[in-house]
Amino acid sequence: MKPQNPSLTAPQVKGLVQMIGLTRDREFNCSECLEHVSEYAEHQMTGQELDAAIACIEQHLKLCPECREEYEALLKILRAGA
């Protein structure tokens, strides 16, 4: 969809409301997410306990579809054993 003629759909408004609901005063940005995502993905694969310092990566992944897409692709690689 191109933004020249916007008309928000119900799912888009829902997405906006959801983003607002998830907003915290302190959040990881995309660079911080990239810095920690390999560690987070390995924790997810092994079920190890997560360091509290990087726990807010989960919140960033809920808010940022691009970082989430890259994280899911990383899991795919790890699951393939590559």
């Binding site: 990239l34 390999s38 993905a41 390995e42 890259e70 692709a73 990383l74 690689i77 790890l78 590559a82």
Partner: peptide
């Protein structure tokens, strides 16, 4: 993390 996991994360960021 393992070095290769770290590097793969950067590769995915680049490609996407």
């Amino acid at each position: 993390s393992r070095f290769t996991t770290w590097a793969q994360a950067i590769a995915l960021n680049t490609a996407f």
